[in-house]
Design a protein around this nucleic acid. Structure first.
Length: 242
RNA sequence: UGGGUCAUACGAAA
């Protein structure tokens, strides 16, 4: 199954889902066995394009074939349904599967609530994770932080950030980028600079996206000399602009 | 050693 899955993955990455499907069906003839992972790759590709009907059909097809389902597979579908706003479909699929929510699936719901502007509910979900002994990771925290930043609630965002630290979850480069952008929305250039500097203090390496975020802050504030200064920082750090 | 969740600008749309 592994060999042909690599080709299926490549087809999906290139957006050739028809070729990927064909290969999946041709696997037996080619001497390969379609397995859960091969199906998951294709199902996830359909989910990411919002084609949940095709994805769900494939799910039932593989179940008919006697293949087992696992959390990764269900997570793809749960995220797909969440991304198109069908949270109840995501929930019923989850119940049907018998899988339990893990940090990935929790995040699909948390993200969806944030997108709807219902960050309070996303926050409740984050707390539910802890109560259910599912350890929230930096992605779960970052998603809620971004939600609060989007609502201009920097105080809440920073509170979550502090809780994250207290629980020993390491922020990532994304966490910092989200906070930098949040401060920018608040017209708080100094806050953005403070976050950027703490990033370096914590031994994380800014990447192109991080630098672009900071450049965006400065250019929106008309501080182009500082924006050019970031360009110099990038050169010194060996990060090329895109 | 193959599969799932979070971030930037620009462009497009409003």
């Amino acid at each position: 199954g592994l060999t042909l899955s690599l080709f299926i993955r490549d087809f999906c990455a290139r957006g050739c889902l028809d070729s990927a499907s064909k290969l999946l069906y041709d696997m037996p003839a080619l001497g390969g066995k379609p397995d859960t992972v091969a199906f998951t790759i294709l199902i996830d590709a359909f989910c990411k394009r919002g084609c949940l009907k095709e994805a769900t059909l494939l799910l039932f097809k593989m179940i008919q074939m006697g293949l087992s389902i696992d959390s990764t597979l269900i997570s793809s579908l749960v995220d797909g349904y969440c991304k198109i706003g069908r949270l109840e479909a995501a929930m019923s699929l989850l119940n049907f599967s018998g899988c339990v929510l893990d940090s990935f699936m929790y995040n699909s719901f948390i993200f969806a609530f944030c997108q709807n502007g219902d960050v309070e509910r996303a926050h409740v979900l984050l707390n539910m994770m802890i109560e259910s002994d599912v350890v929230p990771d930096s992605i779960n925290y970052t998603t809620v932080i971004k939600g609060y930043c989007g609502l201009y609630r920097m105080n809440h965002a920073l509170k979550i950030f502090a809780q994250m630290h207290k629980r020993g979850i390491e922020p990532t480069i994304v966490t910092y980028a989200v906070l930098i952008e949040g401060h920018c929305k608040h017209d708080d250039v100094q806050g953005a600079e403070f976050v950027f500097n703490s990033l370096e203090r914590d031994g994380l390496h800014a990447d192109v996206a991080t630098y672009n975020t900071l450049i965006n802050v400065y250019s929106k504030k008309g501080q182009m000399h500082k924006a050019y200064g970031v360009l110099d920082m990038m050169k010194k750090a060996g990060v090329s602009p895109d």
